[in-house]
Amino acid sequence: MRRKLVYTFIYIFLSISAFISIFPFYWMIVGSTNASVDIIKGKITFGTKFIENFKNLIETFGLGQVLLNSLEVSIFVVIGSLIVSSLAGYGFEIYKSKSRNRVYAVVLWTLMIPPAALMVPLFRLMNVFNLIDSLWGVILPMIPSVFLIFFFRQNFQQYPKEIIMAARVDGASELRIFFSIVMPSMKATYAAAAIYAFMTSWNAYLWPLVIIQSSEKRTMTLFISNLASGYNPDFGVVMTGVVVATLPMIIVFFALQRYFVQGVLGSVKQ
């Protein structure tokens, strides 16, 4: 009897928590189908204004270009950081040496530094490269990811070293071993890392805010931030913008849940 009561209480507690977690998603999707006045009035049922809001975003606010910019940034960051960090993680793990372990410790230490602290020198560096107000200026500094180097190293720890030894005996070169033997067998790791890199680049805010100046170069986060911070924002349009910004992540999440969780949590082995 008492046991049943405890469980009833647990289910109620978890249900309320789940409701609070999900409700803002529901509210955002419903909001994207309503006009601004209705949202302010507190309407929380589906309306008919989605197409209008969406059209408004594209025609008045230039959403199309923004999506292309964000996509370009994310694709290059994902490809770049996957190659650079997996090579490094492999190098640190497979060819262990004292000096490289010292380098690795320094690399990990930099995780503590707030990105805002690097802004000024990076901005000046980008100025030297003539990359201010360009997408490449956004992309390049996001490619080296300390977290992903760490993540790859952790995962290469599990890779059976005998396979590498055997390939060496067969005369395969070190690069060939990495690219045609190790890499193809670590698809899950790469998938999780790709999700992580996609998520951080798609959602990056501070660095694009610093480097991007013209409105044709804006990324998604700058775009919705601008939409919402005006004096009298159109709630319907803002909500539609937020939906467009969030949707890719939700789709990736539900399609690849297992990799997603691994990518977001990083090194914790499931």
Partner: peptide, 28 residues
């Protein structure tokens, strides 16, 4: 030779990290 390969594998990351993290830290 394996030790050398170790540096080769981490070289890209080291260049990028030096440029975009280490240099900014020291410069600031």
């Amino acid at each position: 030779s394996y030790n050398l390969w170790g540096w080769v594998f981490i070289s890209l990351a080291l260049i990028a990290l030096t440029l975009f993290i280490l240099y900014p830290i020291i410069y600031s």
